[in-house]
């Protein structure tokens, strides 16, 4: 499904050049649950952003189901995100001025062809994460766990083939964190490919593969059989 070849990402500021990623090669198959691990500042999030096409690699090729995303236009990438990807963030990133239902609906807004009625799709996504009773509330009226479940609903409402999660439980207590992991696992069981950045070894243990990053290099990729 995904093939990263010789991916590097450099950041240039006025005087210094920082290497966030160096020569990363990574293939991910449909249906995998990949956990990306590593210490702070190692390049995990950069890798996830490149996978999510909201950051571009400085060099290297990014093949997604046969299409080269590294050379695709901005508009093409936007369409790609709208049709194939779902994002979950550590800080939820819900839009403050929209209700939960409207936030989730936002996940469909930029898609050209919808399989069903927008309303039904939003209802279904809300049911899937158990947030339907909060549909008319605003993000700041919800607990952190509820907000993250709403954010997941927004990510999956368009039935993406790839779900990208950047420390999805980082801002949650263990009870809520556990709930979120269960949702991600069930989505993966339903056929969605999940790539998750995490600090937690116990969460990484629930993934089918763990990729370790250190100083911008991929140091280890371990296939596991989930417990």
């Amino acid at each position: 499904m995904i093939a990263l070849k010789h991916i590097s990402r450099l950041y240039r500021s006025d005087e210094i050049e920082t290497t966030a990623l160096l020569d990363v090669n990574l293939s991910i198959n449909r249906g995998e649950f990949v956990a990306i691990m590593g210490p702070s500042g190692c390049g995990k999030s950069t890798l996830l952003n490149i996978l999510g096409t909201i950051d571009r690699p400085t060099t290297g090729a990014y093949m997604f189901e046969g299409a080269d995303l590294a050379t695709m236009s901005e508009a093409g990438l936007a369409e790609h995100r709208a049709n194939h990807l779902g994002f979950i963030f550590q800080s939820f990133n819900l839009v403050d001025d929209l209700t939960i239902r409207e936030n989730i609906e936002l996940g469909l807004l930029y898609r050209k062809n919808l399989s069903g009625s927008r309303k039904a799709m939003v209802e279904e996504a809300m049911d899937q994460v158990g947030i339907a009773h909060r549909a008319r509330h605003y993000p700041h009226q919800l607990s952190g766990g509820q907000q993250q479940r709403a954010a997941i609903a927004r990510a999956i409402v368009g039935a993406p083939s790839l779900l990208l999660a950047d420390e999805p439980t980082g801002n949650l207590d263990s009870e809520n964190g556990h709930q979120v992991m269960e949702i991600l696992k069930s989505l993966n069981a339903g056929g969605v490919t999940v790539i998750m950045v995490t600090h937690s070894q116990s969460q990484a243990d629930q993934a089918s593969r763990v990729v370790n990053i250190l100083d911008g290099r991929m140091v280890l990729s371990v296939n596991r059989v989930p417990a």
Binding site: A75, A78, E79, R81, A82, L109, R111
Partner: peptide, 8 residues
């Protein structure tokens, strides 16, 4: 968020 969700 809008851009991440596919807005240009």
């Amino acid at each position: 968020v809008r851009r991440t969700l596919g807005g240009t």
